[in-house]
Amino acid sequence: MPSWFAAGVYQGTLGGQPITLQLKRPAENNDEVGAYFYQSRQIDLTLHGSRRGKALILAEEVWSGPEKGLQTSGCLALTRVGDSLTGTWKSPAGKRLAVSLKPLKLAAVPLKLLDTAQVRKLRAEQPLDFLKLNTAWPKRADAEGSVEEPLTGIVYPRVAGASAALAGALQDRQLAAAQSALECQAQLGDSAGKGDGFTLEAQVTRLTPKLVSLHESAAYYCGGAHPDNFDEGVILSRVSGQSVKVTALWPGLSGAKQLALYLAAYPSDGGDPECSSLIQSSAEPSSSDPQFAAWLTPKGLSVVPTFLPHVAAACAETVTLGYGQLRPLAEEKGRYFSDLYPR
């Protein structure tokens, strides 16, 4: 890299079109030095850096599908003038466009989202995503008072009368999903087809005086051999917005116990017995890591395995463990007992 090279975020124009560009120090044995996006498109183009004299040379790459792979779609040659960057962009066919960039002070960008630790971390560590997502998110006219992130279309429910901490936690979960959608778009590049990308369906499944629970179902195809999907269970404190573990509700519901109860109730429709064997062999009952996505419903705790290999994903059936069935595993003096078993 040229001696003047420094990490930072810049905004300006390329051929008269507004762009935002980030430079960062490359990792060892890696020449990736940042990315940029056009305001009109808002999809990152990866930049690989080198030096030619005092000029910084940035080759932009875009994924063009499995047949063509990564393609160099342009090359920027930039020099520093004061604190600004100027130069040209050149297409593979030889077309040249002027580039003019000035540094952006991220700390001075007003927050349009709730001020949470995750938003501040996003601004510091992934400024391009921050600048795309730090916008006004409109409310939708639905029963759950959902909010839509306008760039990715990710929708997430809200809770009426939520504490500031809970409102921030719900926003953060939506923010993480929107980041996943942006990353997926960048990976697809020019190869995106109809139905490709990242989608999320989220709904509130249970509200108690102290808890809110949600179920998230994500589906995505970001390139590669097959599309994929996953489920997430969310249980949050309505006061602190912090995640509440299943074992805080039922101390006796260890991973091994979840597996035993799940297998006893599976399959609910008398399905393929091979799935039961596969689930049992794929599980790690001794592990302290969660083996199931779990969320509260009016009938009980719904669980679905998260440890199955992709080829066995069809075996991941949701099973609901009833509150009565789980009561012996709870503690009557526990913080949330009265929420789950009101008198």
Score class of each variant (00 low, 15 high):
Ala93Trp: 02
Tyr266Leu: 01
Val99Tyr: 03
Gly334Trp: 10
Thr13Glu: 11
Gly300Asn: 13
Asp228Met: 03
Ala225Thr: 11
Val81Cys: 05
Arg80Thr: 10
Leu182Ser: 01
Ile154Gly: 00
Ile154Thr: 01
Ala181His: 04
Tyr323Gln: 00
Thr199Asp: 03
Leu56Arg: 02
Ala169Ile: 05
Gly193Thr: 05
Val304Pro: 04
Gly193Trp: 10
Ser180Gly: 09
Trp4Pro: 05
Val81Ala: 09
Asn30Leu: 13
Val304Leu: 12
Arg206Gly: 06
Trp250Leu: 12
Ser254Glu: 09
Pro209Tyr: 02
Pro157Val: 07
Lys257Gln: 15
Lys112Gln: 14
Leu151Tyr: 11
Ser91Asp: 09
Glu216Phe: 10
Asp339Trp: 07
Pro26Tyr: 03
Trp63Val: 03
Leu175Asn: 00
Cys222Asn: 13
Ala167Lys: 01
Ser243His: 10
Ser191Asp: 12
Leu321Glu: 09
Ser191Cys: 08
His215Lys: 14
Ala77His: 10
Ala248Pro: 00
Glu144Ile: 02
Gly324Met: 12
Ser91Phe: 08
Gln126Val: 08
Gln242Asn: 14
Ala177Pro: 00
Leu114Asn: 06
Val99Ser: 04
Gln203Val: 11
Gly300Ala: 14
Ala164Ile: 01
Gln187Val: 07
Gly94Asn: 05
Leu78Gln: 02
Ser40Trp: 03
Val311Ser: 14
Glu149Ile: 00
Gly161Glu: 09
Gly252Pro: 03
Leu56His: 05
Val62Gly: 12
Leu56Tyr: 05
Cys184Ser: 04
Thr135Asp: 04
Pro2Val: 15
Leu207Trp: 12
Thr135Glu: 06
Leu45Met: 11
Ala136Gly: 08
Glu28His: 07
Pro66Trp: 15
Asp190Asn: 04
Glu67Gln: 06
Ala316Gln: 05
Gly74Val: 10
Leu261Arg: 02
Gly197Trp: 02
Ser73Tyr: 08
Ala93Glu: 09
Glu61Asn: 10
Pro342Arg: 05
Arg51Thr: 15
Ser217Asp: 15
Ala314Glu: 15
Asp196Pro: 00
Thr318Pro: 01
Leu253Phe: 14
Pro328Asp: 12
Thr306Arg: 15
Thr205Arg: 02
Thr247His: 07
Ala164Val: 05
Ala107Val: 13
Ala248Arg: 00
Ser191Asn: 06
Tyr323Asp: 01
Leu214Val: 07
Ser50Met: 09
Phe292Gln: 02
His48Arg: 06
Val155Gly: 01
Lys112Arg: 12
Ala143Pro: 03
Asn134Gln: 06
Ser191His: 07
Gly193Ile: 07
Leu85Pro: 00
Arg25Cys: 00
Ser50Ile: 09
Arg158Ala: 05
Ala55Asp: 15
Gly233Trp: 08
Gly153Phe: 08
Gly255Cys: 07
Ala143Asp: 13
Leu211Asn: 06
Ser73Arg: 05
Phe198Arg: 01
Leu278Tyr: 11
Gln42Cys: 03
Leu23Pro: 04
Trp137Gly: 00
Leu166Asp: 01
Lys54Glu: 15
Trp4Ser: 09
Leu249Gln: 05
Glu232Cys: 11
Lys139Gly: 04
Ala314Gln: 15
Glu144Asp: 10
Asp31His: 11
Val303Tyr: 11
Arg158Ser: 06
Pro127Ser: 06
Ser254Val: 13
Phe37Val: 01
Leu253Glu: 08
Leu111Gly: 01
Gln39Leu: 10
